[in-house]
Write a protein that binds this DNA or RNA. Structure first.
Lengths: 238, 238
DNA sequence: AAGTGGTCTAGACCACAAT
DNA sequence: TTGTGGTCTAGACCACTTG
């Protein structure tokens, strides 16, 4: 009779062995780590198996490998941390809060030159523009000022944003995309303060998000949150 | 004569095929994707090869797989975005700016209960506490208020922080770690304003970072940045 | 030439889910 | 029972780096 819970996949054993060693500082950053052949001998597994362990560690940024040379403990300096920026509606739903969206503007406009460039359009070309206040249980949480490339989402203006988040709709229309974020703190303008029910000059967390697909930019959104009511959380990918 | 550049690894071909299909919306979120056996037949490769392609797509969050059921196009809702929070010194060095650090406090203190709990210590146990102002070309960019678990970095107080960043030192002492972040906007206190050469109440971007290893918390840092002079950037992991 | 990683194969056994 | 993914093997060929 075997104990099934004790069973750990061989590749996982190899991986854990290496990870533990790294964590204990056995191989300081830059140090040469055991070769695949050594690990094959030590663990009595096939090369594919240790290869998988090493490849995964590489994907996690814990080791660096180069053909013909060897595997090395990674330099753990440039820390890339993952901050989760979720769709507000989902975030609120997860917390069991009521989400309301008030549409302040929903129009087609002529893109000013600076915006046109960022959206990959000709100056003066039509863009979709929406401004929406999102509230959680009645309290304003986000002022969303968004421009959308009509080519990427022709039906954007027909969406009922009281029931569908722009993010949600755009995800459906343009499933796989890339995004760039910028996060900063700034003081609320008079307009923003009014929309968010805070005082002018109050600190706000501002997220600017630009998304693209291969064929060009999709949308640029400026999300303004009252500093006192909103924060981002995240973790480090080990 | 063969063209060597045309050579694409079979697993990469399979992966690209699937990725392209996802991008074109061929398999909308939740849709059943081709099974390993189908891909084996279609591409004439071994199962290990298509398995690798699928496993990597899974790692990238593009598909979801479950044993006995199948592979499905991922729900692209919960977007995990990577915001890079780099060591300030490196960030400035990359921009060619001069980094100076002024140590305002460097002491061992008794941990108040709330802090002790977050650092996994007994209330009143000794903690290391440093407060440092970081400047770029003479302009204050960050006020770093940090508590360190003495067990994780016994030599912390002996470090010359004019030449070595706390982050840098801690990375050496505790190579592999995990971190949690919280980012928010808040108004500068009188003390913070003075240290950062801004006005009281000015918006600040505040990053709270807590790091741990398996054996316990290492450090908690509160990093306050003038909103007008600092912002975070990041991208979306496709 | 020797050692390294990069990749592929053609089978295999298993756990799991749906039927 | 059938089909799915999860994993492993024991070889193999190749490209690359170093001596």
């Amino acid at each position: 009779m075997v104990s099934p819970d004790t069973a750990e996949a061989p590749y996982a054993r190899v991986k854990r062995f290496l990870k533990d060693g790294l964590e204990r500082g056995e191989w300081p950053p830059g140090a040469l780590m055991p070769s695949e052949a050594e690990l094959v001998a030590r663990f009595g597994v096939s090369r594919m198996t240790v290869n998988r362990a090493l490849r995964e560690l590489q994907g996690e940024g814990l080791v660096e490998r180069s053909q013909g040379v060897g595997t090395f403990a990674a330099q753990r300096h440039r820390l890339a941390s993952t901050l989760t920026i979720r769709d507000l509606h989902e975030e609120l739903a997860a917390r069991g809060q009521q989400h309301e969206a008030e549409v302040l503007l929903k129009a087609e406009e002529a893109a000013p030159p600076a915006l046109a460039e960022r959206l990959g359009l000709a100056p003066g070309a039509p863009v979709f523009h929406t401004v929406i206040v999102h509230r959680a249980d009645g309290l304003p949480l986000q002022l969303e000022d968004r421009y959308v490339n009509p080519a990427a989402a022709p039906g954007y203006l027909d969406v009922d944003f009281a029931t569908t988040t722009p993010t949600h709709y755009l995800l459906q229309v343009a499933p796989l995309w890339e995004a760039e974020y910028s996060v900063e703190a700034s003081a609320a303008s008079a307009e923003e303060a009014r929309r968010l029910a805070i005082a002018e000059g109050d600190p706000c967390l501002v997220v600017v998000r630009r998304t693209r697909r291969l064929d060009g930019p999709i949308t640029i959104a400026r999300l303004v949150h009252p500093g006192a009511r909103y924060h981002l959380e995240g973790g480090f990918r080990p």
